[in-house]
Design a binder for these strands. Structure first.
Lengths: 159, 159
DNA sequence: TTGTGTGCAAAAGCTTTGCATGTTG
DNA sequence: CAACATGCAAAGCTTTTGCACACAA
């Protein structure tokens, strides 16, 4: 996931909070401090994460949140496209911030779990064509390539 | 998933059992009747299924198998490419038989859960190119398109 | 005969739910 | 102040594990 400088980050967080506000208003959801805190912490992260990891992270930052709220807020954020949810083969949902970053797909190492990102315009072409042919209104997709990376450290960190 | 006539099916089952035997021998795994029964029932199915569904199905056919064996055997079958495992967004692994059927990707209806299949050669091109660029040895992939199908019955069967 | 595979049930891991309390609108 | 969100813990669901017995090699 792309790293960004601190100034840009603050600006970005202001932006995504606005987007989140609009989403909450539009659906008559309440604007609670927990929801904004979770959004903020997610946008300070630079990696993929899971719900439990985020919960631990919030606890470590001395936020008083519960797992229930973490899961609830993640779903809200996914619904307004501020966060993307992935299932990288395992039975554990992974998330990542997605506003202001380029749409991309993933390459996952089956040995060490390392995740790389890539973009390819042909994915969009496939979506358009298949939607047409099969009369589907394609809203989103997930393309994961699995394989073995060639990092020296890879074999040693098998999960 | 493609339907096939009964004669072809019997022939196919003979074939996949041979392939499974070779895989078991090569890895010094034992050839148990349970393993072959599970393989056979999977190849009689024409749809995607989950582990619990297969377990229930086996029970209904009066096989005496346990969940543990179903999960164990599914893993063996995935390892020798006779069965493919999918995660269609939900926290529930889905499987399908994969020998003798064309490699394909999936289009999943987010309302009714309906799964369609499609093939597109560009997926292979993307795999090759990204493997090269990112120095990954890509072994497999998963491409899922999510959207809304236009079946009349769709809205009514929301899960 | 030896050790892997099995069935069964219990445990584990991720996610959701119920309930009493707190807080937003 | 009414309804919704929260924290906490318990329950739910899928998958894995432990153990005694069965059976393939």
């Amino acid at each position: 996931m792309a790293f960004i400088v601190e100034d840009k980050l603050k600006e970005l967080i202001v932006q995504v909070k606005k987007i989140f506000s609009i989403h909450l208003e539009k659906n008559s959801y309440r604007k609670t401090p927990e929801r904004y805190s979770i959004l903020e912490e997610i946008y300070k992260k630079n990696d993929h994460f899971d719900a439990e990891g985020l919960y631990i992270h919030m606890k470590n930052q001395n936020y008083r949140v519960s797992r229930a709220t973490v899961y609830n807020t993640l779903e809200l954020l996914v619904n307004c496209d501020l966060v993307t949810k992935h299932q990288f083969g395992k039975n554990l949902a992974q998330y990542e911030k997605s506003y202001g970053f380029r749409q991309h797909d993933h390459l996952i190492c089956i040995d060490c779990g390392d995740v790389l990102e890539f973009c390819d315009p042909r994915v969009q072409q496939i979506k358009n064509m298949m939607g047409d042919i099969l009369s589907f209104e394609v809203t989103h997709h997930s393309l994961n390539l699995y394989g073995k990376c060639k990092r020296v450290a890879c074999e040693g960190t098998k999960r």
